[in-house]
Design a protein around this nucleic acid. Sequence first.
DNA 1: ACCTGAACACCGTTCAAGT
DNA 2: ACCTGAACACCGTTCAAGT
Lengths: 221, 221
Amino acid sequence: MATQSEPRPLRIDAERNLRRLLDAAAEAFAEEGIEVSVAEIARRAEVGKGTLFRRFPTKGHLIAALVVARFDELAADGRELLDAEDPGAAMHAFLRDGIRMQVADRGFCQAAGEVVGTFDNVNAAHDEVFDVTERLLVRAQKAGAMRKDINAFDILALQYACAQAGTVLQDVAPDIWERYVDVIVDGLRPNAAHPLSHPPLTQAQVEKLHAIKKKRQAASA
Amino acid sequence: MATQSEPRPLRIDAERNLRRLLDAAAEAFAEEGIEVSVAEIARRAEVGKGTLFRRFPTKGHLIAALVVARFDELAADGRELLDAEDPGAAMHAFLRDGIRMQVADRGFCQAAGEVVGTFDNVNAAHDEVFDVTERLLVRAQKAGAMRKDINAFDILALQYACAQAGTVLQDVAPDIWERYVDVIVDGLRPNAAHPLSHPPLTQAQVEKLHAIKKKRQAASA
DNA sequence: ACCTGAACACCGTTCAAGT
DNA sequence: ACCTGAACACCGTTCAAGT
């Protein structure tokens, strides 16, 4: 929520076409991955290609819009988990929920890594996810369920990592990634902790990463 | 090694062009990722595009050839580690070496997931990696350095997972992935082990995965 | 045998013509 | 304001013409 202050409402037909486009794209990307052609998406939405490009200046912007939707879902899920009784279990559940979400959506999984840092609306949505992750983590750490030397970035990176591995194996063993989370969860327990060899990612580094990605995207345009 | 029995040697100029092509492609993919155009690769190699397609029926085949080279490297590295004194340290070193390799090569990291299962030569090379991984793992398990309920697939999946996360952050924190390996390594220790929620991947499932990928590739051709 | 670049099909993006 | 599809540039792949 609160991603942009809508300047003025769309015309009724435009609004309808936008919905169709988003639905068609979500379906197509989830099923076939982000390599589906925009022509195919326009066909599924029953609009001309030009209509798509009127709403989204680039195929990437359309992908970004869907990634935002998924991040919003995940953040909402995390907020609910903040009320759970067991802080450790809540943190673990969040870890799993995010992976399940990514693995179920082939397009999201392909796009997430590329698109974070590149689009402002994606960054905003991701910041919300980060916020909830941090609150869940601190809560779990205070309860003694989680080692203290890791931060929310680490959690999100490990979540992303598992999702990537899970996606490759999704066709043949849709939930084999649960094993990998199990191992990671074991490694995240306070009693398992051995000193980490590197300092965590700083906020400054994250911003630098975003700057690099935006520059790279601008260069290719 | 032993991927194919060469039927007859190439003409001297063809041999030279092949070398140039592989070198140019390795460089281009590592730097810019697999989205570099074949025209650009041909230009770097100073040959016509037709020459590229004479050696590699498809851009994918060229990518596959380079993935094979990397897998061979990794397998060789693993074989050396089999002679190390400390079996646990050797297993950990192998985990890290593979990730370092992937993170340093943008193209390899993008391609590895897609190309395993799709090309026979890649499968053969990957089987070798699997073999060494298994030997390293069993050795570490016998030494009591590694939990007993995981197998070589799990190790390779976790390695792949870390490499994926590491690649995204490579520009800004080239070795931040070491933290994630640290956590995973902690989760892989025998004393950290809690029961896993899912059975491991079977050999039959792996073969099924390969079959699916080949069918999918054939369908898109 | 092998090399080459023009030609083809396909895909993302633009835009002139329509309502 | 918005919609559309023909037109353009680019990329992977093919192939006729050359050595």
